[in-house]
Structures are given as structure tokens and as C-alpha cells.
């Protein structure tokens, strides 16, 4: 197919009435790529402190049919999860990503909660994950795949529960990319970019039948976020 490639590139240049870009133009494009200029950032998340960001996230989450519980510390998470499962009439049984973020939580405080760590089995139960960042502007969770974070956990379970340290709530999406870059030493190229970065904003839905919104089209029909207000800087 190399000649398709050559021909397409030649065709583009012929249409634009120029050759391959000269050095100075290339340098300008490299500068733009490295500088990653931002567009207009919606003011709604500007200047908010951590509490303000969490409030905005919470409000936005409810507007996209997501539910939120806020707990003071990570020691409160197991009871909050158990209470949520009970409120939805779900069995005290979850699948959980083998994410070290979730290792810090004292799950043994809820001995009746059955937890299977690993990738999801495909049974349509409850899946628990962490998130790398949460965008307050739109209540969007950023979850990156990796050896301890299977992307299918965000899609196969019928109910998705995310444990979110409040320190990870940022204003706009651009700040979430910077958080990801910070965990990867800068440029997101080659293996530094996770295979899958999922931005999740509410539970799965479809409007394909007479434009009536129905939840749970293929992914989870419920999305619940447990925000841990004081969880250090994880």
C-alpha cells in the first residue's frame, strides 16, 4: 500500500499547491504540538478550590443520571459501598480492578462484602474501579487502562462504582490530560499513552428508539461515584 500512501500525500500537496512543508513551517508545527495551546476554557470551573470543584462535579454528575456519595475518609468507603448496594437491592458482591489505589481501603471492615479482584468475568454484576481524574466541568471520569486497570471493567458490569479521591477532581478536561501526563513523565507518546483512556460521563444510554432515552444500552445502567473528601494526595 506504500504507493497509495505516496499518492495520497502527493495529491494533498498538489491540491494545496505546494511541496512537503519547508523547515520553518515544520518547526512552527512542532512548537504548536509541544505547546498544546488550549482553546477557550468555560468559566464555570475557573477559580474554584477543591470543595468548589467537588460541588460542581457533584451537581453535574446528577444532571447526567449519575449518583454520588461523599465520605470523609477512605475508612468510610466500604460502608458507603455496602449501603449503596443495599439501596439498589443488589447482592453484597462485587468485582474489583486490582488497582493499588483500591488496596488502601480497609475492605475487611465489611466482612460480608464479597470481593473478586481481577478482570471482569462478564457476569453482569457490580464492578468497582478507581479513576485517574474527574472533570468537574462535565462530571467526566478519566479511567486509563493498564495491568491493574482492565478497561472492560468500565463496560461489562451492570453497575459501575468509582472510588474517587477528591484531590483528583479538576476543573476542565485539559487539566485531566495534564494529570495523566504528570503520571507518565510528560509526553504521551508510544507506551506512555495508555492503550485505552476512557472518559465516562454518566451511565450508558440510547435514544435510538423514538428518541426516548433508555439507560443501560450496552454498558452499565447505573454509575455511582464515592468521593473521598480527605484522602491525602493519591
Amino acid at each position: 500500500m506504500s504507493d497509495a500512501r505516496t499518492q495520497i500525500l502527493a495529491g494533498i500537496r498538489a491540491s494545496l499547491k505546494r511541496d512537503a512543508l519547508p523547515q520553518d513551517r515544520v518547526a512552527a508545527l512542532e512548537t504548536r504540538l509541544a505547546g498544546r495551546p488550549r482553546g477557550p476554557i468555560p468559566a464555570r470551573s475557573a477559580g474554584l478550590d477543591r470543595a468548589g470543584l467537588v460541588d460542581l462535579f457533584d451537581r453535574q454528575a446528577r444532571s447526567v443520571a449519575c449518583t454520588v456519595t461523599r465520605v470523609a475518609t477512605r475508612a468510610d468507603v466500604p460502608a458507603a459501598l455496602a449501603a449503596y448496594l443495599k439501596s439498589q437491592n443488589l447482592p453484597a458482591e462485587v468485582e474489583m480492578s486490582p488497582d493499588p489505589d483500591l488496596d488502601h481501603i480497609p475492605w475487611s471492615a465489611m466482612p460480608l462484602l464479597r470481593i473478586a479482584r481481577g478482570k471482569p468475568s462478564g457476569a453482569e454484576g457490580v464492578g468497582v474501579t478507581s479513576a485517574l481524574a474527574a472533570v468537574a466541568e462535565t462530571a467526566t471520569l478519566m479511567i486509563a487502562s493498564g495491568p491493574t486497570s482492565p478497561a472492560t471493567m468500565n463496560f461489562l458490569p451492570d453497575t459501575h462504582v468509582v472510588v474517587l479521591p477528591a484531590a483528583r477532581v479538576v476543573g476542565p478536561l485539559e487539566d485531566a490530560w495534564d494529570r495523566l501526563r504528570a503520571t507518565r513523565d510528560g509526553a504521551l507518546v508510544a507506551a506512555a499513552m495508555p492503550r485505552t483512556v476512557n472518559l465516562v460521563t454518566g451511565p450508558s444510554r440510547t435514544g435510538d428508539i423514538e428518541q426516548k432515552i433508555e439507560m443501560g444500552a450496552h454498558g452499565p445502567r447505573r454509575l455511582h461515584v464515592i468521593v473521598v473528601e480527605d484522602d491525602g494526595d493519591v
Binding site: V64, K119, T138, P147, P150, A151, M193, N198, V200
Partner: peptide, 24 residues
């Protein structure tokens, strides 16, 4: 498109599964 501020799933895919990945 639909009046949503963000669609539910926006997914960035880069290459095949990495060594050690559990799925993909």
C-alpha cells in the same frame, strides 16, 4: 449533536494491548 455537554463515552485508543494488560 444531542444537546449533551459530553456524550457518555469518549474513548482514546492507542495501539494494541500492552504487555501485562488484562484486556484489549
Amino acid at each position: 449533536a444531542t444537546g449533551q455537554e459530553m456524550s457518555v463515552y469518549t474513548t482514546f485508543s492507542t495501539g494494541p494491548r500492552r504487555p501485562g494488560d488484562l484486556d484489549g
